[in-house]
Write a protein that binds this DNA or RNA. Structure first.
Lengths: 109, 109
DNA sequence: CCAATAGGTAACCAATTGGTTACTTATTAG
DNA sequence: CTAATAAGTAACCAATTGGTTACCTATTGG
C-alpha cells in the first residue's frame, strides 16, 4: 500500500511546522545549513532532511559556495497554495457577510 | 516522542489529497457522508476519519438531519492558509519581476 | 414494532514520518 | 599535505497515518 505523498507535493511540504519555520526564516534572506539549523532544537541531519523535502517540492533552492550551501526561497510554488486557498474566498466572504447580516437583524435587546 | 500535529492544525488537515478533494467537493454544497464517500475509492470509515480531521480543524461542520449528517464547508480557517501564503507574495512577485528584467536585458540574439 | 439505513468507533495493520547517531565526502585554513 | 569544517546519507527506531473489517448506535419506512 503506497500512501506516500507525491514527492513534490507542496501541500505536504508545508504541512510540517519545522519546514514552515525554515521557509519563514528564509524570507529574511538566504542562509547556509548550519546557521539555519542553529535556530532549531532538532539536529542538523533532521534539518537536512527537511531541506530535501523543501528542495524536492521546489520551495527552496540550493547554491553551493565553497563548503557551504546556501538555501534560498524559491517561492513560485507557494503561489499554488495561495491559489488553492483563494478558491474558497467567496465562501469565507459569504460567511462573514451572513454573520454580519445576522448580527444586524438580531441586535442584542 | 510525540510528533503528532496539533490536532486542529489546518495545514496538516489540507495536506492530504483526499481531504482536499472533500473540501473541493463541498464547495458545490453540503453533502451527507454516504454521498460524499461514494465519490472516493476508499471505504466510508476512511472518509469518516478524514471528516473527523476536517471537523477538528474546523474546516467543515456537521448538521444532523434525521439519520443523515450533512457536512458543509466552514471556510474561515482556509483564510489562515491564504494569509500564510500571501506573506510570500512579494517574493514570488520579485522573482517574476527579476526574471522579466533578466529577459529584457538579454533578448535572444 | 423492527428490519434497514446512516454513519461513527474499535481494533488492527503496513507504510510513512521525523528524529537520532554514526559515517562519508568535499572543501579549505594553516 | 592534513586537520578541521560543512553538510549530505545510512541505518535504525518509535510514533503517526491512512487504510481495512467488524461492530455499535440512532433513526426511520412500512
Amino acid at each position: 500500500m503506497s500512501r506516500s505523498a507525491s514527492n513534490s507535493d507542496v501541500f505536504n511540504a508545508v504541512a510540517d511546522p519545522t519546514r514552515r519555520a525554515i521557509l519563514d526564516r528564509l524570507r529574511r534572506g538566504p542562509s547556509p545549513v548550519n546557521e539555519l539549523a542553529s535556530g532549531f532544537r532538532v539536529s542538523r541531519p533532521a534539518i537536512s532532511k527537511h531541506l530535501r523535502v523543501l528542495r524536492t517540492a521546489r520551495l527552496v533552492r540550493e547554491k553551493k559556495d565553497g563548503r557551504q550551501r546556501f538555501y534560498e526561497l524559491e517561492p513560485q510554488r507557494i503561489q499554488e497554495v495561495a491559489k488553492w486557498a483563494e478558491q474558497y474566498r467567496e465562501f469565507w466572504q459569504n460567511n462573514i457577510a451572513s454573520l454580519k447580516q445576522h448580527l444586524e437583524q438580531s441586535p442584542e435587546e
